[in-house]
């Protein structure tokens, strides 16, 4: 654990909340259940474009309850936004992680033991061990990502269809 609560340097005023942030956390648990059916291999890693070590299994884990608002605070404070964008859209620096985040077991595994080859600028995703991000905080982060609503489809955006 960090000795003090993570400092939110980038204030919510300067990085306004994404629309749709009020979605329920319970949705995440439902998603995990639907996708994993319980015990999960790190199949979710495939969703983020990483090689999957065979035989690595994660104990069955339900999606813990988390607080989306705290999660957004953390998301900015611990730097997730730097590579994945402030709403998980992804960029050249990191893949899309919201909406519809990968199942929680895969999510927490990826945070603790990042997979995937170095990408942009040969920067590899940093590890977020328990010393800097507790399981409860990870749950908050996950709740934030799960709360992010969908963007308008490209087909409905005139600037993307000219």
């Amino acid at each position: 654990m960090t000795p003090t609560a993570p400092r939110l340097k980038l204030s919510l005023a300067s990085l306004p909340l994404v629309t749709g942030a009020a979605a329920l956390i319970g949705g995440a648990a439902a998603l995990i259940g639907a996708l994993t059916g319980g015990a999960a291999l790190i199949g979710g890693a495939a969703l983020i474009g990483s090689a999957v070590p065979t035989g690595v299994a994660i104990a069955q884990a339900a999606t813990p309850a988390g607080n989306a608002q705290r999660g957004q605070h953390l998301y900015l404070a611990v730097g997730c936004y730097e590579c994945h964008g402030t709403t998980g859209t992804g960029a050249i620096t990191g893949p899309k992680i919201a909406p519809n985040p990968i199942p929680f077991p895969a999510f927490i595994y990826q945070l603790r033991h990042p997979l995937g080859a170095p990408s942009y600028g040969n920067i590899k995703m940093p590890a977020y061990g328990e010393a800097v991000l507790s399981d409860a905080q990870v749950a908050d982060l996950y709740a934030y990502l799960a709360s992010i609503g969908p963007s308008p489809p490209a087909s409905k955006i005139p600037l993307l269809n000219r």
Binding site: L15, P16, V18, T19, G85, T86, T87, T89, G90, A91, K96, S151, P152, P153, A154, I157, L159, L160, N161
Partner: peptide, 22 residues
Amino acid sequence: SRTAAALGWNDRPITTARLCME
């Protein structure tokens, strides 16, 4: 790329995709 560009289209801070397409 179009699908990816739509992600966060109305976000603030403005996405780089939106910036470029505007």
